[in-house]
């Protein structure tokens, strides 16, 4: 127990040392890098997964393919994909390594968007069409608002996953917060390893809270308390 206390104390010392809060290897720089990579990967994951999920959910075509695709994506090992990207690339590995990071975030967005739209009450869909809405209006004004809790859940899962995968991708040469873990392990600097891990955990918690706030902000009042598993 004493050893544990020493570890916590030395990690705290690492975190609070002024030298670790400046320069190209400083915490603010690494944090900014990490946020930049995560935003980039999440953007491309959304670009692919959201329209695809909306289309499949709305048309009801290809549901089985989406479910199997998402399952296969879940089975892929993060570390293997980022290393493969780095090994196959020549020069700066940053962009190649971010491709699998984005790819792995596709599954949660795709599945939740598809499930959200699919679960919309058919009566509601009929009512919207009966009010004279065209298929686009049915999607935008009836289906998406009702499916929003699940769509947001998918986005939140994807965002947290991207933060985590980007950390692992430091092994394949990516910058960001994962550097502390990888570089610290390489030289057995455990205060740095544990200190870096603490920052990653804090970032994941902040991302989680941001999505809880976003949900409060954009969700129609009539839908609150439904789907409430967050």
């Amino acid at each position: 127990m004493n050893a544990l206390f020493n570890q916590i104390q030395s990690a705290w010392q690492w975190l609070s040392a002024a030298a670790h809060w400046q320069g190209p290897d400083g915490i603010p720089t690494r944090l900014l890098e990490h946020l930049e990579y995560s935003a980039f990967a999440l953007f491309f994951a959304i670009l692919v997964a959201l329209p695809l999920g909306l289309f499949v959910g709305h048309s009801g075509r290809g549901g089985f393919i989406v479910a199997s695709l998402a399952n296969s994506l879940r089975a892929l090992p993060t570390l293997g994909l980022v290393v493969l990207a780095a090994v196959l690339s020549t020069g700066d590995p940053t962009v190649p390594v971010l491709i699998p990071v984005a790819l792995l975030a596709v599954a949660p967005i795709l599945v939740n968007t598809y499930e959200g739209i699919r679960q919309v009450d058919p009566d509601l869909r009929d009512a919207a069409a009966g009010m004279g809405m065209n298929p686009w209006q049915v999607l935008l004004r009836a289906e998406i608002p009702v499916a929003l809790p699940l769509i947001l859940l998918g986005l939140r899962t994807a965002a947290i996953q991207v933060v985590a995968t980007a950390t692992v991708a430091a092994y394949a040469g990516l910058g960001g917060l994962g550097r502390y873990a990888i570089d610290g392990l390489a030289v057995s600097d455990y205060p740095q390893v544990v200190g870096g891990a603490v920052i990653v955990v804090l970032l994941a918690v902040v991302v989680q809270l941001l999505f809880v706030a976003l949900r409060r902000l954009v969700l129609s009042p009539g839908l609150r308390n439904s789907h409430d598993r967050s």
Binding site: A164, G196, A197
Partner: peptide, 8 residues
């Protein structure tokens, strides 16, 4: 994140 939890 898994790596962070392992490290902790």
């Amino acid at each position: 994140p898994s790596l962070a939890l392992f490290l902790l």
